[in-house]
Structure formats: structure tokens, C-alpha cells
């Protein structure tokens, strides 16, 4: 199997308005690689939701995007508080985001459900007080 192409991003936790820089950049990179626009849309939206989550809940984190021949893998890691109840967090409409986030148009409880629906696979590894790593995969074939 040929080697993956890797893109690494640091998501700044202080600046809510800059959330999305990484997703917009990955969108451009994938376009340059000739990836199908429908796939790019799914990858960049899922990643944007993940970025926003990291800014809201975890003071930022990192994103690694690995582009393989047959799939795109996104690994979002943070050292935030962890997710207390993953099942609940996955429910549409459930949110623990503070009010100021809602005034910016987020915190509708759609982030994780969107991430799941836009990807072919999503795994959440979380530990209270340690952090959360979310791995998402979008198949290319």
C-alpha cells in the first residue's frame, strides 16, 4: 500500500472566529489532489464541526488528516475535559455549549451527529480530565 499524504493542523482554542481555518485549508488541498467534490464537502464539513467542538469545549487541539488511496482519515485530538456521556452527546439537539456560543450560531447539538452522518466511520475515544480523540473516515471508493 502506498504511503498516506499527511496534513497536520493546530486549532487555536482562544479564537472562536478562526475555527474553520483548517477545514477550509483541507478543502483546498483535497481539491488540488483531485478528490471528488462531494467527498471534499463531507470531509470539510465533518472536520469543521470537529474544529468548532475543540474550540468550544477543549481550548483547541490538533487535527491530522491522512489521505490514503482508498480513504481519508481525520484524527482530532484535544486535551479537554472529555465527554461525560457519549451516547447523550450523540443525540441531535443535546448540547453543553455555553450561551455565548449559541449567539454565534453554534451549540445547537448538531455537531457530533453531523460528523457521524457525513462520514463512513467515526470513533470517539474520550477520558474525563484527559481529553478526547475522534477518528473519522470517509471512503474514497
Amino acid at each position: 500500500m502506498s504511503e498516506a499524504i499527511n496534513f497536520h493542523y493546530v486549532v487555536d482554542g482562544d479564537d472562536f472566529t478562526s475555527a474553520g481555518e483548517a477545514s477550509v485549508d483541507i478543502k483546498r488541498k483535497l481539491r488540488q489532489l483531485g478528490v471528488d467534490p462531494a467527498i471534499i464537502r463531507r470531509v470539510s464539513i465533518a472536520m469543521y464541526e470537529g474544529e468548532v467542538n475543540m474550540v468550544i469545549h477543549a481550548d483547541g487541539g490538533t487535527v491530522d488528516v491522512n489521505v490514503y488511496e482508498d480513504k481519508i482519515e481525520m484524527i482530532l485530538s484535544d486535551e479537554g475535559p472529555g465527554i461525560v456521556n457519549v451516547e447523550l452527546a450523540m443525540k441531535k439537539g443535546f448540547s453543553t455549549a455555553p450561551d455565548y456560543v449559541r449567539s454565534l450560531g453554534f451549540g445547537a447539538g448538531m455537531g457530533l451527529p453531523n460528523m457521524k452522518s457525513y462520514t463512513d466511520g467515526m470513533q470517539i475515544d474520550t477520558k474525563i480530565g484527559v481529553g478526547t480523540t475522534i477518528t473519522m473516515v470517509v471512503n474514497l471508493k
Binding site: T17, A19, K27, I45, L104
Partner: peptide
């Protein structure tokens, strides 16, 4: 909505 995230979303959706 008029915060800059609107533009990021608009860009992602194209």
C-alpha cells in the same frame, strides 16, 4: 447571523 463563521460555512458548502 453576522459573525465570521458565516463566511467559513458559506465557503465549505460552496
Amino acid at each position: 447571523m453576522v459573525n465570521v463563521n458565516v463566511i467559513a460555512v458559506a465557503s465549505l458548502i460552496n
